[in-house]
């Protein structure tokens, strides 16, 4: 196999995998944030009900 071919395949695989990981992490971070927000909202709504 020649070095140019290996370099070409490697660059393609690494950058596609890299962007995919980036997408997964971005989605995960946003989902975690919203999950946290949901928990907080549930706490607020419970407090409100107890106040009444």
């Amino acid at each position: 196999m020649n070095a140019y071919v290996v370099a070409g395949y490697t660059i393609a695989i690494v950058s596609i995998a890299g962007y995919s990981m980036n997408l997964i992490f971005r989605r995960k971070a946003l989902r975690n944030r919203l999950q946290k927000a949901k928990l907080e909202l549930e706490r607020i709504s419970k407090d409100n009900r107890n106040d009444n």
Binding site: K38, L41, S45
Partner: peptide, 11 residues
């Protein structure tokens, strides 16, 4: 409280 419930469902 309604608003909070709405947001929870949205999430």
């Amino acid at each position: 409280d309604n608003q909070t419930q709405k947001e929870i469902t949205l999430i």
